[in-house]
Each structure stands twice: as C-alpha cells, then as structure tokens.
Design a protein around this nucleic acid. Structure first.
Lengths: 343, 343
DNA sequence: AAAATAAATGCAATCGATTGCATTTGTGTT
DNA sequence: AACACAAATGCAATCGATTGCATTTATTTT
C-alpha cells in the first residue's frame, strides 16, 4: 500500500547534500569518488531501499544488457534446453534474456524481430520459423551493427555468426548405420527442405546411399512437417508401396515415434523387420520400447556457445566483424529401434 | 556498416518543420492530430525507417510492457509449456516476456527477482525454487504494488494471486485409484514437503488411505528430490522392507519412470505385481512401456490464465486489489502402469 | 605561504519519447 | 467583420541515470 515513488539517486543526493553525479559514481564504484563518501552513500542507499532504474540507465548508455531469443516453439525440448544454455551464460555475464516464439509463422517472426529491435536488445539469437526463406526483417539488426547469431535453422548467405550441427554428416551417419545393420531399402522422412537442417540431412542420406551403391528412389523420400500425424501418414504411405522399405531415417524423433507406434500396431517387429532412426534425442526416445536410435545435438552447449559468441560481439563492438559458423559435434546414439544385434 | 544513429521523432519533426510532440502524437494515433498530418508523418517515418525507442518510452511512461517469469528450470516440460502459454497471451496483448531460471537455488532466485525489479517489469510470474521458504525478496514487488502471480509452487500466506492445481485432490485421486485397482500396500515418494505441491499431494495420499481404513506407515513414505537416481534409490529401499509395498504413488513422472526401469530389471511385472502412478504427464509417460498413469496439469492453460490475471492487474492498477487463488482442473490419466484391467 | 598538482565533487546536457498546458489556426455564427 | 469556440499544433518539463568538462578542495612541492 506504500504509494511513495521509488527512491532515486536524487533522493540520496538531497539527503546527503551532495550531487546526483557523485551518488551515481559512488554506486558504480567509480575511482573518482573517495572511499568514505562511497560508504556513506551506499549505506544510505541500502537504508532507503534504493533500487537502480535500469530503464533510465539503458536509455542513457544505449545498452540494455538484454539478449533476445526467437525460437519456433519454447516448449520443444531442443529449444528450451538451448535457451537454458543461453540463460546460464547470459546471467553470469549480467545479461537478461527475453524470449518469444514464432510458432513457425513468418509473420509472427517478423513482428517479434521488430519488437526486439525496438526494445533495443543488445543482440539477437534466433532459429528460423519453418516459413522463413527471406531475411529482410533481420537487416534492421545488420544495418545497425547489432550482433546476430543464427542457430540450427540458419539464414544461408546472411552475414552473421551461426551455430549449427553438421546435418549432412548426421544424415550420412544415420543412413550408413542402417545400411551397416543390414537394412536393404531405406526411406527418408524429411521436414521442409527450404530449411538448411532438413535439406542437409536429406543430402547426407542420399550421399550414404550413393556411396553404398544403393539406388536413390523418389518414392522413398517423403517431405512434411514431421508431426506425429505426419509420421503416421508417411509410414502408411511407405508400407503401401509396391516395393516398401525396411527402414526409415526420420527427420525428428516425434515422427520416428509415431512410426514405431504404427508399425507395432501392425505387428511389424522393430528392429527385426524394420529399422528406424530419428533425430534430436528427445527425452522419450531413450525410454520408449523399442528405444529410438537418434542423433543427439548438444542443445545446452549450443546455447552456451551462442551466448558466449554474442556477448563477445556485444562487448567488442569496435573490433572489425568476422563471422564464423561453428559446427557442434553430434552423436549417433544407437538404440533398439535400429540395432539388430541387440536381439 | 551504416553508422548513422537511429532515426528519432525529432528527425522526423525537423524534416517536416513541425514539433516532436506532434510526431509523437501522430505515431500514437492521438485524435488531436489531423488526419492529413498523421499520414504525412507516418509516410516519412516509414521512409526513414523509423523504429520507436521503447526504452525512452518506457522511462517516460513508467511502463515496460514486460512481464517477468522466474521458474526453477526452463527446460522442464511443465515449465516450458507454462511459459509458452504466458507468452501466447502476453504477445497478443502487446507484452514482452523476460525469463530466468532459479535452478532451484534460493540465492539465484533472489538475484533474479531483484534484477527483474530493477528492469521494472510490469508484473512477475513465478514458481518457487525448492529452497525457498521465506519470501522477503518478493516484498519489493508487493510494496510497490507491482502485480505478482505465483503458480504451482506458491508462497503460502503471501498476499498475491495464485494459480495452482488441487494437489491434495490429486494425491487423493491417485491413491484411491491404486486402491480401486486392488493394490494392498501403497507407498508414496514425495518431494520436499516445504513446498505446498508436494506437501498437499502427500496429504491427499494419506487422506485416501485413512478413508479406506488402510494404515499410514512412516516407512512407506520417502522424501527426496525426485530425480531419476532418487527414484531408483527409493524403490530399492521400499523393496528391501520386511513388508514391502505393492504400489507407489510418485511425486513426479521422472521418479516413476526410474522405478519402472528398476522393477522391470528385477523381473517384477507392472502392473500385475506392482502398480505405479506418477505426476505431471511428461511427454515420455504416454509412450514408455508400460505407459505411466499420471496426473495431468494443464500447463499451457495455467500459463495463459496467469498472463490474463497479471495483465488485468497491470491494466487496472487503480482498482483495489483482491487476490484470488485459482485452482485449475487436473485429470488422472490411467495408463498401463497401474491398470490391472488392461492385462 | 604561495604555487603547482592531484583528488574529489558538481554542473548541466543528454538519451528519446510523452504530456499538461499554452498558443495558434480554423470554422461557424450572427 | 467580429466574436466565440473548436481543432490542431507547439513549448518545455519530465522520466532517472550518466558523463564531459568545470570547479572546488586537498595535498605536495619549492
């Protein structure tokens, strides 16, 4: 019920008969202020319950100590873990994190990016929506030389730092693994291939087939949005082929799971009759039956790295920019769904 | 590489030979400005690529259109889904969301809450850390009449809005269900009972036993932090009892899962020999074998509700405060792990 | 003790948008 | 044409902290 306005440095100054500048400097431990004065000021600040107004400081210093994050969906394990990684590093470096989700909609992404700009975030970390194939809305940041880091789903050709995994190698590894396990006819369920991630995984898949002198067949490649429903439809379609596959490399674990559920319901044994490899190691992948072989992306570490990169850029704005693309290591986790030797 | 400072309303004013006030009003669609003037101003703003400086506006208006969220861990499904719900509603109402994780550490929570205050969030939504049993750090908000909403793990006795589920009823329902399925000796694995959630679930458990004339036994109640490891240790301990239980109601799904893994490894059949009910319906709970019976909390809806509540409070600050505690519905999802009739 | 130097503090502008009140411009009435 | 009134715009202070430069105070040097 206290209606009293906030305590400001002016209140402290008045009380002590000194100037606001001195108070400001004292609270910021500026060496120009005598120790005894500082102590006096800090003591009073504490007593009055002074809380700095970050907004005012931000306005004056043109720095918000805030990093914006835009991801398709906050509550996807990969993204929330990534965010957690960013937040860890950011917090320790004195940065706040503001977050929005594009819901995989380009229009919302554009709105958010604008809003983040108006909020004067010091840097922006983002993974593109499924609909994003043009990048003008990020130009705002580039123009004003505000650090920008893309991760996972990146803007190809855009001058910025990028953090990715080697999706091509992942696709290759997954497919090669299925081949090594003796599967003969391997299909691929991909996401929208405008996105580098899905595109590269598919190329890796193709490359592995070619390397092993196996034919590429269009009917064995399906593209959709990789939801549970999509996975089920895809597996039905594949099983209906005249010459159906005996394994699938899926673009994510969700669709892999829904395929497994369907295959089981049809009495098809996994991995004996059919092999599955997913992508991104969702928490459920380890614990379902059969457990899902998958590729693990170091989400937390990617977030940490992204934060380090962007904070470094923010704090060295005067230096000439050099943009790097950092490729983080992935791991093929072989589990039951693709592993005949387990049985 | 453009080094030109940002375009401000003053730049627009100068160019058009009018005052900044008029520009400001025009851009905010103030009816005091003539339509033709507005159009002129907006056109130039667009041409110059004007982007409002939200910081300046925030300082002047004493409003940031920002809601702070503090949760124990961002990448826990319940929390990230809750956040997603908040973000949905907040975004549509023109609010930003800033997020931090306490990592279940009181000290970090205190730091974050202070920082959110200094950043002048218009409201704060929070679920307490496992270590939090005193609430002075939230007093800052209460004193200045800044809306505060607790959810899930709330501060008992603190005057604020609260969003919870009826954990007592949940504990009761879960236990009653196990009894109905014919389990004779039911144990409970609880989290730290300083937290209302775990405390209430335990009380519900006890109440169900009493109602059914079953004895309460201390050795059947274990308290820990409900990690996977904790779950495994707990089930071992329980099985080692002279008179071991034949079912457990677990404080979360994670510990329930680790119990299941252990029980399976010991050749104990679920649900025939042993029943398990978890809590919070993690994504994996539906898909493991056996699938886990659990209580579903409407995380997304809770987030939406929290956002609605706090935005309403923010935008009606002059109204006298009335604090409500909203109890959201839960659902007992019966799956294989507790359901003898399935087999 | 005066002068020179260093240390401590203060003044006032600034960041960019907003807003109460004053002033100017425009419209309508007789 | 003169007046009343409404509509449109401008002035200048404000939000709270920061900071270059000026000024005051303290210390050292000769």
């Amino acid at each position: 019920m206290e209606r009293k306005a906030s305590v400001t440095i002016h209140d402290i100054a008045r009380e002590l008969n000194i100037s606001a500048s001195t108070v400001s400097r004292a609270l910021n431990d500026n060496p120009r202020i005598r120790k005894s004065t500082k102590e006096k000021i800090k003591a009073l600040a504490l007593e009055l319950g002074y809380q700095p107004n970050t907004i005012a400081s931000n306005l004056r210093t043109q720095k918000t100590h805030t990093i914006g994050i835009v991801v398709p969906l906050i509550n996807r394990h990969f993204f929330s873990t990534f965010i957690s990684g960013v937040e860890d590093v950011a917090f320790d470096a004195g940065y706040n994190v503001i977050i929005s989700q594009s819901k995989d909609l380009l229009q919302k992404e554009q709105q958010i990016v604008n809003s983040m700009f108006s909020n004067r975030v010091d840097g922006l970390i983002t993974s593109l929506s499924m609909q994003t194939s043009a990048f003008e809305h990020f130009q705002l940041f580039a123009n004003k030389n505000i650090p920008l880091v893309f991760f996972d789903r990146i803007a190809p050709g855009f001058e910025a730092n990028k953090i990715i995994v080697d999706d091509f190698a992942c696709g290759f590894k997954a497919t090669q693994h299925l081949i090594d396990e003796g599967y003969q006819r391997i299909a691929h369920l991909a996401g929208p291939t405008v996105l580098n991630t899905y595109h590269d995984r598919m190329e890796g898949y193709k490359s592995a087939l070619i390397k092993n002198n196996m034919p590429l067949e269009d009917e064995l490649i399906i593209c959709n949005r990789l939801t549970r429903m999509d996975g089920q439809e895809a597996i039905k379609k594949l099983l209906d082929l005249k010459n159906p596959p005996d394994a699938v490399f899926c673009g994510n674990d969700t669709s892999a799971l829904s395929m497994i559920v369907y295959l089981k319901s049809q009495g098809i044994r996994i991995p004996e009759d059919f092999g599955i490899v997913g992508f991104s190691n969702e928490p459920f992948s380890e614990v379902v039956t059969p457990s899902i072989s998958t590729l693990k992306q170091p989400a937390q570490e990617m977030g940490q790295k992204a934060a380090e990169l962007i904070i470094n850029e923010i704090e060295n704005k005067e230096l000439p920019r050099t943009y790097q693309t950092i490729t983080m290591p992935t791991e093929l986790i072989v589990r039951e769904s693709s592993s005949r030797k387990f049985n």
